[in-house]
Design a protein around this nucleic acid. Structure first.
Length: 430
RNA sequence: GGAGAGGUGGCCGAGAGGCUGAAGGCGCUGGUUUGCUAAACCAGUAUACGGCCCAAAGCUGUAUCGAGGGUUCGAAUCCCUCCCUCUCCGCCA
């Protein structure tokens, strides 16, 4: 959420920045300026009146009889008026809040212009490796997994439905090895591992910006009050410090970095009919998420580091990938700047997203009230939040299958993972 | 799920309709004293949203005692609903 005062004071600048995202990004702002003025007037009126009411009600203590009754009538009228003003004020504030909640974040000035994924900018120097060459026609991961007898979509459909998968044997072990490997790499790089709930309340989803706009993407349970399955560990981990001041006695310092493994649940995945085959787009998948809390001064540098941190496991697995800066029109609504990591999939002859690393400025922190104290004497300021996948586990397994496949349909396990698999070197047909 | 006890500032803990943004203590910050450290003493020590001010500083208003509603001229204090914590019972990996 953007800051109301900032928006009102810099309306033209805000509109221009939002226009980079597309024509309608600032639509909700049309009435905000006028409503903000009304809001202030109501606050002044109500508070002045209440102050007067409080002052006069002191006399109630000493007055008796007729005089007291008279004053009570007068004060009652004032109290009623204050109530009426406050009711109107709440309505106005609710409209402002609703408008502001639907306004996306302002793209960072360094974000490239553009409307769609075609305008994203590949960060050449950060790319890694080269596409492997094959002396045979490479298969996709579905053919490989099913051919090995380790991947079962049919039974997954029976027990759950479309867009679920069952992994078996060494492939299931591989998935588990990959996620452990990711957590170990993150720990080496200074991230504290956390394990959080997979069901969260509405306040948490509002804090990170999934609600109210993206309810349709979420799985919602029927308990009251509702709990939602997390679409990413970003939600529980960022909300770890909701309504906290980082650096205070019971909170970690600003600059804290977390790594969190979790399953992720997405209801709308696949509604567009994309990627109907295989493990790429699922209702449930595993991910290790990296989350950072930084000062405004450090957050852009932190995004560069975060992206490098997310690349590290891909490098150790020897997987060819590139880094792409998303253009203003392709970024998620909450993000200020985003780098995607795209891994090469020989089965598709294409790069596919395997990580998305974003800085959010104070957009999430304002909703979630995550602050830090610049120094012992200064007032708390909103922190900057960042997160990125480090990495999507299922898609990594896909990449391993496709990049390390052999002519006979077996798959070589990358060296870095073998210690996690008791030295296993190959996936072979069972 | 059932029964009971609770939720007050960074922490502990008083308060039981107006004098309470909230006693007292601890902690923290600054100062005085002081060979150093410690101790003692003095002062300060929340957040949000407004107003005055070119701005900062400062002054000032309002709100906040788990959350939300209600009663009242006036609520930390009374009533209702919800959330959370603890103890016991039940259930359970």
């Amino acid at each position: 959420m953007l800051d109301l005062r900032f928006v009102v004071a810099n309306l033209d600048h805000v509109k221009a920045a939002l226009a980079r995202r597309g024509a309608h990004a600032s639509a909700a702002l049309v009435s905000v300026e006028a409503e903000a003025h009304v809001r202030k007037e109501l606050i002044v009126k109500s508070e002045t009146l209440r102050a007067e009411q409080k002052k006069q009600s002191d006399a109630m203590k000493t007055l008796r009889g007729e005089a007291q009754a008279e004053l009570r009538t007068k004060l009652k009228a004032m109290a009623d008026e204050v109530k009426a003003l406050d009711t109107t004020l709440r309505e106005v504030e609710a409209r402002i809040e609703a408008a502001l909640l639907s306004v996306p974040n302002l793209p960072h000035p360094s974000v490239p212009d553009g409307q769609s994924e075609h305008d994203n900018v590949v960060q050449g120097p950060r790319n890694f490796g080269a596409a492997p060459t094959f002396a045979f026609a490479p298969k996709d991961h579905v053919a490989l997994g099913e051919g090995l007898g380790l991947l079962d979509f049919e039974r997954a459909a029976k027990i759950s439905g479309a867009r679920f998968a069952v992994l078996k044997g060494d492939l299931a072990r591989l998935e588990r090895a990959v996620l452990t490997f990711f957590l170990d790499v993150a720990r080496e790089r200074g991230y504290t591992e956390v394990l959080t709930p997979y069901l969260v309340n509405q306040a948490s989803l509002r804090g990170t910006g999934q609600l109210p706009k993206f309810e349709a993407d979420l799985f919602k349970t029927t308990v009251e009050p509702p709990l939602y399955l997390i679409p990413t560990a970003e939600v529980p981990v960022t909300n770890l410090h909701r309504d906290e001041i980082l650096g205070d006695p019971n909170s970690p310092p600003i600059g804290t970095k977390y790594a969190c493994f979790s399953p992720c649940f997405r209801s709308e995945a696949g509604s567009a009919g994309k990627d109907t085959r295989g493990l790429i787009r699922m209702h449930q998948f595993h991910k290790v998420e990296l989350v950072r809390f930084e000062t405004p001064e450090d957050s852009q540098e932190a995004l560069e580091q975060l992206t490098t941190d997310a690349q590290e496991p891909l490098k150790r697995l020897g997987l060819h990938h590139r880094v792409v800066a998303l253009c203003a029109g392709d970024m998620g609504a909450n993000a200020e700047k985003t780098y995607d990591l795209e891994v090469w999939l020989p089965g598709q002859s294409a790069f596919r997203e395997i990580s998305s690393c974003s800085s959010f400025g104070d957009y999430q922190a304002r909703r979630a009230q995550i602050r830090f104290r610049p120094s012992a004497t200064e007032k708390p300021k909103l922190a900057h939040t960042l997160n990125g996948s480090g990495l999507a586990v299922g898609r990594t397994v896909v990449a391993i299958l496709e990049n390390y496949q052999q002519a006979d349909g077996s798959v070589v396990i990358p060296e870095a993972l073998r210690p996690y698999l008791g030295g296993l070197e190959k996936l072979t047909k069972v």
